[in-house]
Amino acid sequence: MEQLIPQIVFYTFSLAMVLSAIAVITVRNPVYAALFLILAFVTCACIWMLLEAEFLAITLVLVYVGAVMVLFLFVVMMLDINMDLVQQRFARYLPVSLLVAVIMLIEMLMVVAAKNFTVELFPMPAPHPLGYSNTEALGELLYTKYLFAFEVAAVILVVAIIAAITLTLRKRPNTRHQDPSKQVQVKKEDRLRVVKVETDTEYGKHT
C-alpha cells in the first residue's frame, strides 16, 4: 500500500509529461507549443520531487518555467513566423528525416531497453533521513569536489554576458537620454529668455 501511492503519482505525472512533450512538437500554434513545454517542465519537476531532488525540482520550475519559458513566449509572440513556409520544408525533408528517426528510435530502444538498466544494476537509493537537506549537500559538492567545474561555468556566464552586450549594444549619438544631474542643476536663465519686443506703432494705427 505504501508503494502504491508513489507509483500512482509517478505514472500520472509520467503520462502527463510524455503527452505534453508530444504535444509540443505536434500542435500547430507555437504559443500552445511553448505552453505545453511549460507543462512538461512542471510535471518533470514533480517526478524529480519523487526522487527526493527537491532543490533541482524547484530550480527547474523557477529557472525554466519562470525565466526561460517566459522569454520564449515573448520571442514567439514578437516574431511573425510564417508557418506555411515551415510546413512546406517539413514535407520536403520528411522522408529522409523519418528514415533517420526510425533507425535512431530502434537503436535507442535497443540500448535503453529495460534489460540494460535493470533494478539489480541500478538499485533504488536508500531514502534520506528526515532532516536531510538537498541544498546543503549540493552546495558542499559544488564548492569542494566540483569547484573547478563551478568556476569554469562562472567564466562561461561572464562570456555570455560579454557576448550579449557586444552584439546588441549600439551607441547612437542622436538618441535622447535623461541626465538627472543636469536636470537638477538647471537654472531659470538656462531655459527662459526674456525678449524685449518693440511694439509696432504703425501696425497699431491701422487697427
Binding site: Y146, F148, A149, V152, A153, V155, I156, V159, A160, I162, A163, T166, L167
Partner: peptide, 28 residues
C-alpha cells in the same frame, strides 16, 4: 581547460567556453 581536462565535465565546459567565444567573434 580542454587541453588539461581529466574528466568529461571539464572537457565539456572547456568546449562551451571556447565555442561561445568563437560564435561571438564570428558575429563581431
Amino acid at each position: 581547460v580542454i587541453v588539461s581536462s581529466a574528466n568529461m565535465l571539464s572537457v565539456y565546459l572547456g568546449i562551451e567556453l571556447l565555442a561561445l567565444s568563437s560564435y561571438t567573434l564570428v558575429a563581431l
